[in-house]
Design a protein around this nucleic acid. Structure first.
Lengths: 122, 122, 122, 122
DNA sequence: GTGGTCTAGACCACC
DNA sequence: GTGGTCTAGACCACG
């Protein structure tokens, strides 16, 4: 399911992180599932193993996955840790920035809420 | 009103663009108002004129301001051009990305909508 | 008593070594006691015999256990050999590193000593 | 002041992180001070810029330093954030592991406390 | 086989 | 000049 858009301006490693989170939210990846190895994933996406490794490391720092030396990397339980609380705050800050941009473009509050309702998935 | 946070990890030119848009939304800057010159603005914010110039150029490309050679730069009318439509699409894409992140962190739809209602300003 | 946490990021062989030492300190294992064979231990812990073997070899190098070909492996007397002196030095170096980290985090000397007093077991 | 021991088994990037923290504790580096650029530091220590970059990134994640695109990296205030609280817990866990090792080697509680008192610096 | 560390060198964005 | 991203490829530790 994981895929990368090489035309995008977003860094590969960020796209990969995002894509994995998306799959978790959609239930495609579940707690305990094993991710493809760094090399395997790199092969699938035709990118450098170091870049995949970077994404995996960052996801581990975010407590999204767990990697065990010589064994592989696994999806973690989404427990509500302190770290996650901090990440929530960051999301809210980003949303706030978006709201400013939106109101400059005369996007109404109703339009945004409607958008949220149409695209929110859990 | 325009201000820059030199401690932030966000690039200066982006902060400046954002700050100007914010002032427009809040009515501090209005259509036809004259912005300080590049050099003047750079002096006020103690930053490099090149950086201010970059922000102005990008804002002009976004049709937010208008620069007239030898006269100065002015706030433009916020007409709903095709360009603005494209910018709207970008905002919506960003919002979509945020929603994935949010749902991964178990932030509910209601919580997001509530947040929008509390922080939206026009 | 010996147990391995397969979720831990620490290598299995290290966990096993640590666990055996812990049991010796707590008197669960005593000088002369026979350890399970490599294969038996591997079975109990559902891990690869090579990994158990590695742990045993390293413990033997540290003069913690003694392997007699065809007989089995036994807990050794904890004599204060030159080797143990070297290991002491390593511990002290590690403690020193911890102290730097601790003082960076503003953990007071008193707090550390209190911690040592609460958790030291012999 | 920063230095790396290429003979050590510890990764360079870890040694560098450690060395910088040590300098902060000793007052050699202070809040607001600018660190040598990635390339400059790499040159001084005759190591690869990527390795220095890795150390800087990790220190930034630990909120020890602040790096600004195109400007440089600076020592941060040592505020007592949630993150630091979590780091404290990790330190205490490591200390606990050391205590087990120590007691196996018959290092007495008094000896450890004495060692702490002699080597603690703030 | 797995991931972790390190190097060398390229290209880009920001100031 | 600064740091950020990405590639290619080497060597090591773990299971």
């Amino acid at each position: 399911m994981v895929s990368i858009n090489k035309q995008s301006s977003k860094p590969y490693y960020e796209q990969l992180m995002f894509s994995i989170k998306e799959d978790i939210v959609n239930g495609i990846l579940q707690s305990g599932d094993r991710l493809p190895s760094v090399r395997e994933m790199a092969k699938q996406l035709t990118m450098n193993p170091n870049t995949v490794s970077k994404a995996y490391k960052l996801l581990e720092a975010q407590e999204v996955i767990l990697t065990i030396q010589g064994k592989g990397t696994y999806i973690k339980n989404a427990k509500d840790t302190l770290l996650k609380q901090q990440q929530k705050e960051k999301i809210k800050q980003k949303l706030n920035d978006l709201l400013i941009e939106a109101s400059y473009l005369s996007i109404s509050e109703e339009e945004i809420i409607q958008w949220v309702q149409q695209n929110y998935r859990l």
